[in-house]
Amino acid sequence: MYAINFGLVLLAVTTSQHWSPPHYVMGYTFTEWVALLTIATIFVACVTWLIRVVIVSPLNAQISILSSKIDAMNTDRAKETQAMNAIIDEHGRMLRDHADKIIRHEEDIKTLFKQRGDRNN
């Protein structure tokens, strides 16, 4: 059936090498390699699916919920910022009014002291 080159076999035996036919790779036939590759591929696919179902999908759901909560928080913060800016503007106006009143009162006090001084002389 097989034509074996006895010279190669004799060379392999004398140099302590194991001779294998050319359709064998590391002692396995091509069909065995394909079967091993198929098993490995199925195993990797199952592990990938399991990781996706157990870890990635719940994390994506939680990240989505967190993202919506952060958006709501940003909206609330923007409303609070507007309210605080309005309060700060009002306080600024009130401080300017008080500063004007203080200036007016100082002038009134100076005027009263001048009038009092004029009466005493």
Rank of each mutant, 00 (worst) to 15 (best):
N74T: 00
G7L: 15
A35R: 12
M1T: 05
K101T: 01
S64G: 08
L36M: 14
V13K: 14
V9N: 02
I39W: 05
D89K: 07
Q62C: 06
R52H: 08
I55R: 06
D89W: 03
Y28E: 06
E90A: 11
H98E: 15
M94C: 10
H23Q: 14
V54L: 15
Q82E: 12
I109R: 04
Q62S: 08
V44W: 01
A78P: 01
M26P: 00
K114A: 14
L95Q: 11
I65H: 02
T75I: 09
F30D: 09
R116G: 05
E107P: 00
M94W: 03
Q17V: 08
H105M: 14
T31Q: 14
L36A: 11
S57F: 08
H105P: 01
E90F: 04
I87F: 05
D108E: 04
L8W: 05
L36G: 05
T81F: 04
S57V: 07
E106K: 13
V13D: 11
V53L: 13
R116H: 05
P22T: 00
A40Q: 08
H18S: 13
S16P: 03
F113E: 15
Y24E: 09
K69N: 09
M1C: 13
T48E: 02
I103T: 05
W19A: 14
R96D: 07
T15L: 14
I63G: 00
A3Q: 10
T15Q: 10
V54G: 05
H23F: 14
M94L: 15
T29D: 00
H91L: 15
T38C: 12
D71W: 02
T14Y: 07
S64L: 10
H18D: 11
N5L: 10
I63L: 13
I65N: 04
S67W: 02
I63R: 04
V44Q: 02
N60K: 11
D76R: 06
R77C: 07
V56S: 06
E80G: 06
L10W: 07
K69C: 09
Y2M: 14
M84L: 15
E80S: 08
D76M: 09
T75M: 11
R77Q: 02
W49P: 01
S16V: 09
H91E: 12
A45E: 00
M84A: 13
D97R: 08
A45G: 02
T41V: 06
H91Q: 14
A61W: 05
V44A: 07
A40Y: 03
A40D: 06
V9L: 15
I65A: 09
V54T: 07
N5M: 06
I102N: 05
L36K: 11
